[in-house]
Simulated assay, not measured.
Amino acid sequence: MPVPPFGCTFSGAPNLEHVLAVANEEGFVRLYDTEAQTTSKLIFKEWQAHSNAVFDLAWVPGEHRIVTASGDQTAKVWDVRAGELLGICKGHQCSLKSVAFSRFEKAVFCTGGRDGNIMVWDTRCNKKDGFYRQVNQISGAHNVVDKQTPSKLKKKRQNLRGLAPLVDFQQSVTVVLLQDEHTLISAGAVDGVIKVWDLRKNYAAYRQDPVPFKSFCYPGTSTRKLGYSSLVLDSTGANLFANCTDDSIYMFNMTNLRTTPVAVFSGHQNSTFYIKSSTSPDDQFLVSGSSDCNAYIWK
């Protein structure tokens, strides 16, 4: 049986721009030479990165290194040329769903997980017990407010003091993105809110209800619990395209104070969290996958 690919991304390193890295459900990473003349030369490297699914992967900006985010609750840093494991990032309590770098920083990346946490990692920091540890953490980044009676809530709060929020799939972080060195954008599975975080703030002190620097509330009309499966910035970093599970892609402007979308793209279907989109290098086109097995392109 064919194994579904979960993540695919082109290298940004000089002379490697034609190399496509693809990660799949069985934990394998394959490097494709998209300029190969014959299909036999298409795959030029393959290795098992994890014994569990790899849900996302990201190239270290301009380098021959990759970070993989897996269902085994870790992220791993790889040297692609040597096929060597450089380090393991340990801290999440559930599957990692997303990993991203800032274009400006090679050592710092972020991950988002099904445990509702966002973690920031810095490969320059010394490892502890052989593992990288997060340098910043946003716990319960997309928690849905629990409508409980105050007394129940108080009891629950006391039990949770000093502990991370309870793991609950309902509050999964589905996508993380770094706009620049200290601005992180995230989305979740059910709260319908896109949040912007200032990483100069130490969120580790906020175990329950971290407050984002800016929020984009759900702009549509659906009454179902909704989330986002993909977040993409154009090349200027000014426009954000967000794939929502209400079958729309919302375009938000990141440079002004307006939090309503400047455009909405529709026509495709988005019924899973595996639907992703991408912009063309000249910012003229937006392409998205779709649950009806087609790709859709908008001008």
Rank of each mutant, 00 (worst) to 15 (best):
I297P: 01
G116N: 03
Q148D: 14
F10R: 05
S40E: 15
N202H: 01
S11D: 06
V135I: 11
Y132C: 01
N243G: 12
N52E: 15
Q134C: 09
G27R: 01
H18Y: 11
W197G: 00
K201S: 04
F44P: 08
L257G: 12
F104N: 04
R258E: 13
V287T: 11
V232P: 07
H50D: 06
A263I: 11
I66T: 00
K152D: 15
D209H: 14
L166Y: 10
N202T: 01
I297H: 01
V167F: 08
V99R: 06
Q137R: 12
D292P: 01
Y250N: 10
E181F: 01
T255P: 06
T245N: 15
P210M: 00
G112A: 08
T34D: 03
D72N: 07
T9L: 06
A204R: 14
V54W: 05
G188W: 04
V135E: 00
V144P: 10
Q73T: 14
P4C: 07
S248R: 15
Q37S: 13
Q48A: 10
C125W: 13
G237K: 02
D33E: 03
G83F: 02
S280F: 05
G140Q: 02
D247C: 15
G130R: 00
A187N: 03
T111Q: 04
T236L: 01
V99I: 07
C244M: 12
T279K: 02
E181Q: 04
I185Q: 01
F28W: 07
T68Y: 01
G71Y: 14
F28L: 04
Y250S: 03
S186V: 06
C293D: 14
T68W: 03
Y228E: 03
Q148E: 15
P219D: 04
V22A: 06
N136I: 00
F104C: 04
K106V: 04
A75W: 07
N159Y: 13
G91M: 03
D247V: 08
G87N: 06
K97I: 06
S172Q: 05
N253E: 08
K299D: 08
S230K: 02
C244N: 10
Q137K: 13
I43K: 03
C110G: 05
E46I: 11
Q48L: 09
C94G: 11
R258F: 12
S215Q: 15
N159W: 12
Q208I: 07
I297Y: 03
S151L: 15
L20N: 07
F28G: 01
A13C: 11
G130Q: 02
S288V: 10
L153A: 13
M119E: 05
S278P: 02
S102C: 13
W47M: 03
V193P: 07
L85N: 14
M254N: 04
P210N: 00
L184G: 05
F273Y: 15
G237V: 07
H92A: 09
K90G: 03
W47H: 06
G162A: 06
D191N: 14
L233F: 09
W197D: 00
F6A: 05
E35G: 09
P5K: 09
K76F: 08
L163R: 14
D246T: 03
R207M: 10
V264R: 13
V167D: 10
R133A: 08
